[in-house]
């Protein structure tokens, strides 16, 4: 009996040790994890623009290009994150660093995101201060899904060759968009209007006098809206939360179906450059770095 218990404890010890090894491997190799650690340890950042959102924004907004054009930027978005997570990340950034950004860009895709999702991204939850610890926090249970990402890197050169620049994850891999335009797609404005965490983010930005621009990110052809949605301010009282639609038939004409995508509505590095150039021209028109200048294109 004692021998059995001793051996079981030894086995558990080896398992826990394997968990730590797994965590170290993730911290060194996983894009999301690396980014998260980066974002928490930036050295006196001087960013004018902070990008938040999920993988659509993480892949699709080229913060290096924005920085080269006069808007010092950092892409804080994380793959698979909810709006609640985006709120937490932004709040952390604003609390942690003295220099506040002038503008925050929230990149979303109504065709892919669940705006109501309340869960916090596991990596953010795990690295938050004062979190409660439970059995479920064992890295092999908490970050199970990242193991497949690791395996992808092992077998796929394109995944290995991806890189992080200014927080943007860049893939050069090209996956053709073989979907077709749907002429019945309208912009789902109600989904934006009814998402509580969007308003929390707007309030947070307003508290710090930061302009918030919410971007419906471009997606594959089947997701696009037949007509561009005329932009609107979600919070008219504070004049904040400008909603822009880049996922429509006309704005998406800039993308090459064969070359600009990496699959499932995610832009590769080439597509991200085009998307950011388009965004840049709008930012320049609005002059977002000047306070309270948000207006529609």
């Amino acid at each position: 009996m004692i021998l059995f218990i001793k051996k079981t404890i030894l086995f558990l010890f080896l398992f826990i040790a394997s968990n730590f090894i797994y965590l170290i491997i993730l911290q060194k190799t996983d894009w999301n994890y690396k980014k998260r650690i980066d974002a928490l340890t930036l050295d006196a950042p001087d960013n004018d623009i902070i990008v938040i959102g999920n993988s659509l924004a993480m892949d699709g907004i080229d913060t290096e290009l924005l920085s080269q054009n006069g808007y010092q930027s950092y892409n804080l978005s994380l793959g698979g994150s909810s709006l609640r997570t985006n709120y937490i990340q932004l709040n952390e950034y604003l609390t942690l660093y003295e220099k506040k950004p002038k503008c925050v860009i929230l990149g979303l895709g109504s065709y892919l995101n669940d705006f109501e999702k309340e869960t916090i991204h596991p990596i953010v939850e795990y690295t938050q201060k004062d979190r409660e610890v439970s059995f479920r926090d064992l890295p092999m249970l908490k970050f199970r899904w990242l193991f497949k990402e690791l395996l992808k890197k092992l077998v796929s050169k394109a995944h290995r060759e991806a890189s992080l620049k200014y927080g943007q994850l860049r893939f050069k891999k090209q996956v053709p968009d073989n979907t077709a335009l749907d002429h019945n797609n309208d912009f789902p404005i109600d989904r934006y209007k009814s998402a509580p965490f969007i308003y929390d983010i707007i309030d947070l930005c307003s508290d710090y006098d930061i302009e918030l621009i919410i971007v419906e990110m471009p997606g594959l052809k089947k997701t696009r809206h037949k007509k561009r949605f005329n932009c609107m301010l979600l919070d008219e009282v504070n004049n904040n939360g400008l909603l822009l639609d880049y996922n429509n038939f006309s704005d998406c004409e800039i993308f090459d179906d064969q070359k600009d995508w990496i699959g499932d509505s995610h832009l590769n590095a080439y597509g991200a450059k085009k998307m950011t150039t388009r965004l840049l021209s709008d930012l320049q028109k609005m002059d977002v770095t000047a306070p309270q200048r948000l207006k529609c294109r």
């Binding site: 086995f11 080896l14 398992f15 394997s18 092999m140 249970l141 199970r144 497949k148």
Partner: peptide
């Protein structure tokens, strides 16, 4: 043998 058991247990956790 223990390595094999540990590996199987890790696969259960990571690839379930």
């Amino acid at each position: 043998r223990w390595g094999l058991y540990l590996l199987l247990f890790i696969i259960v956790c990571l690839l379930g």
